[in-house]
Amino acid sequence: MIPYSKEVLQHFNKPHNYGKMKNPDGVGEVGNIVCGDLMRLYIKVAKDKKGQEIIKDIKFETYGCLAAIASSSMLTDLVKGKTISEALDFDRKEIVEKLGGLPPVKIHCSVLAGDALIEAIHDYFNKNNKLIPEKLKLRHQQLQKEKQAIEERYKKDKAV
């Protein structure tokens, strides 16, 4: 079995900020049950003293392996309280660093967590009719395209 760091095991055994959120301001769903990974990230947005929008609360629900659960948990710790613009610049490599590393085959779990954050923020912008930054729009479109490709491949496999 792949050796995992102490931090990964801690986040897997006692994940932070998990569960469904009531009335979230934005929801991001990434991954696919077909691939064995499904992540749902909820955010609540509020203004801080300076009037900047921040991620006031964040929760996740993840179906997936140990690394996927630990990555989701770590992500919520890292971006809670950040401003939206800071969150948009969030580097998902930080998840791996703070987890004390992940085995190479599990890096995609941290990527997935980063994608979930992007989707949740996009959803928040979209729902509130805010102007969506070009970079965010492109990343959202890319993620949607990947999602469709997996679904189509699965349909094709099913047909065979």
Binding site: M1, F12, G36, G64, L66
Partner: peptide, 14 residues
């Protein structure tokens, strides 16, 4: 249903 195999394996391993 609703729980992933490797997670179950690792949780049992612990």
């Amino acid at each position: 249903a609703g729980a992933e195999g490797e997670s179950i394996l690792m949780a049992l391993d612990q």
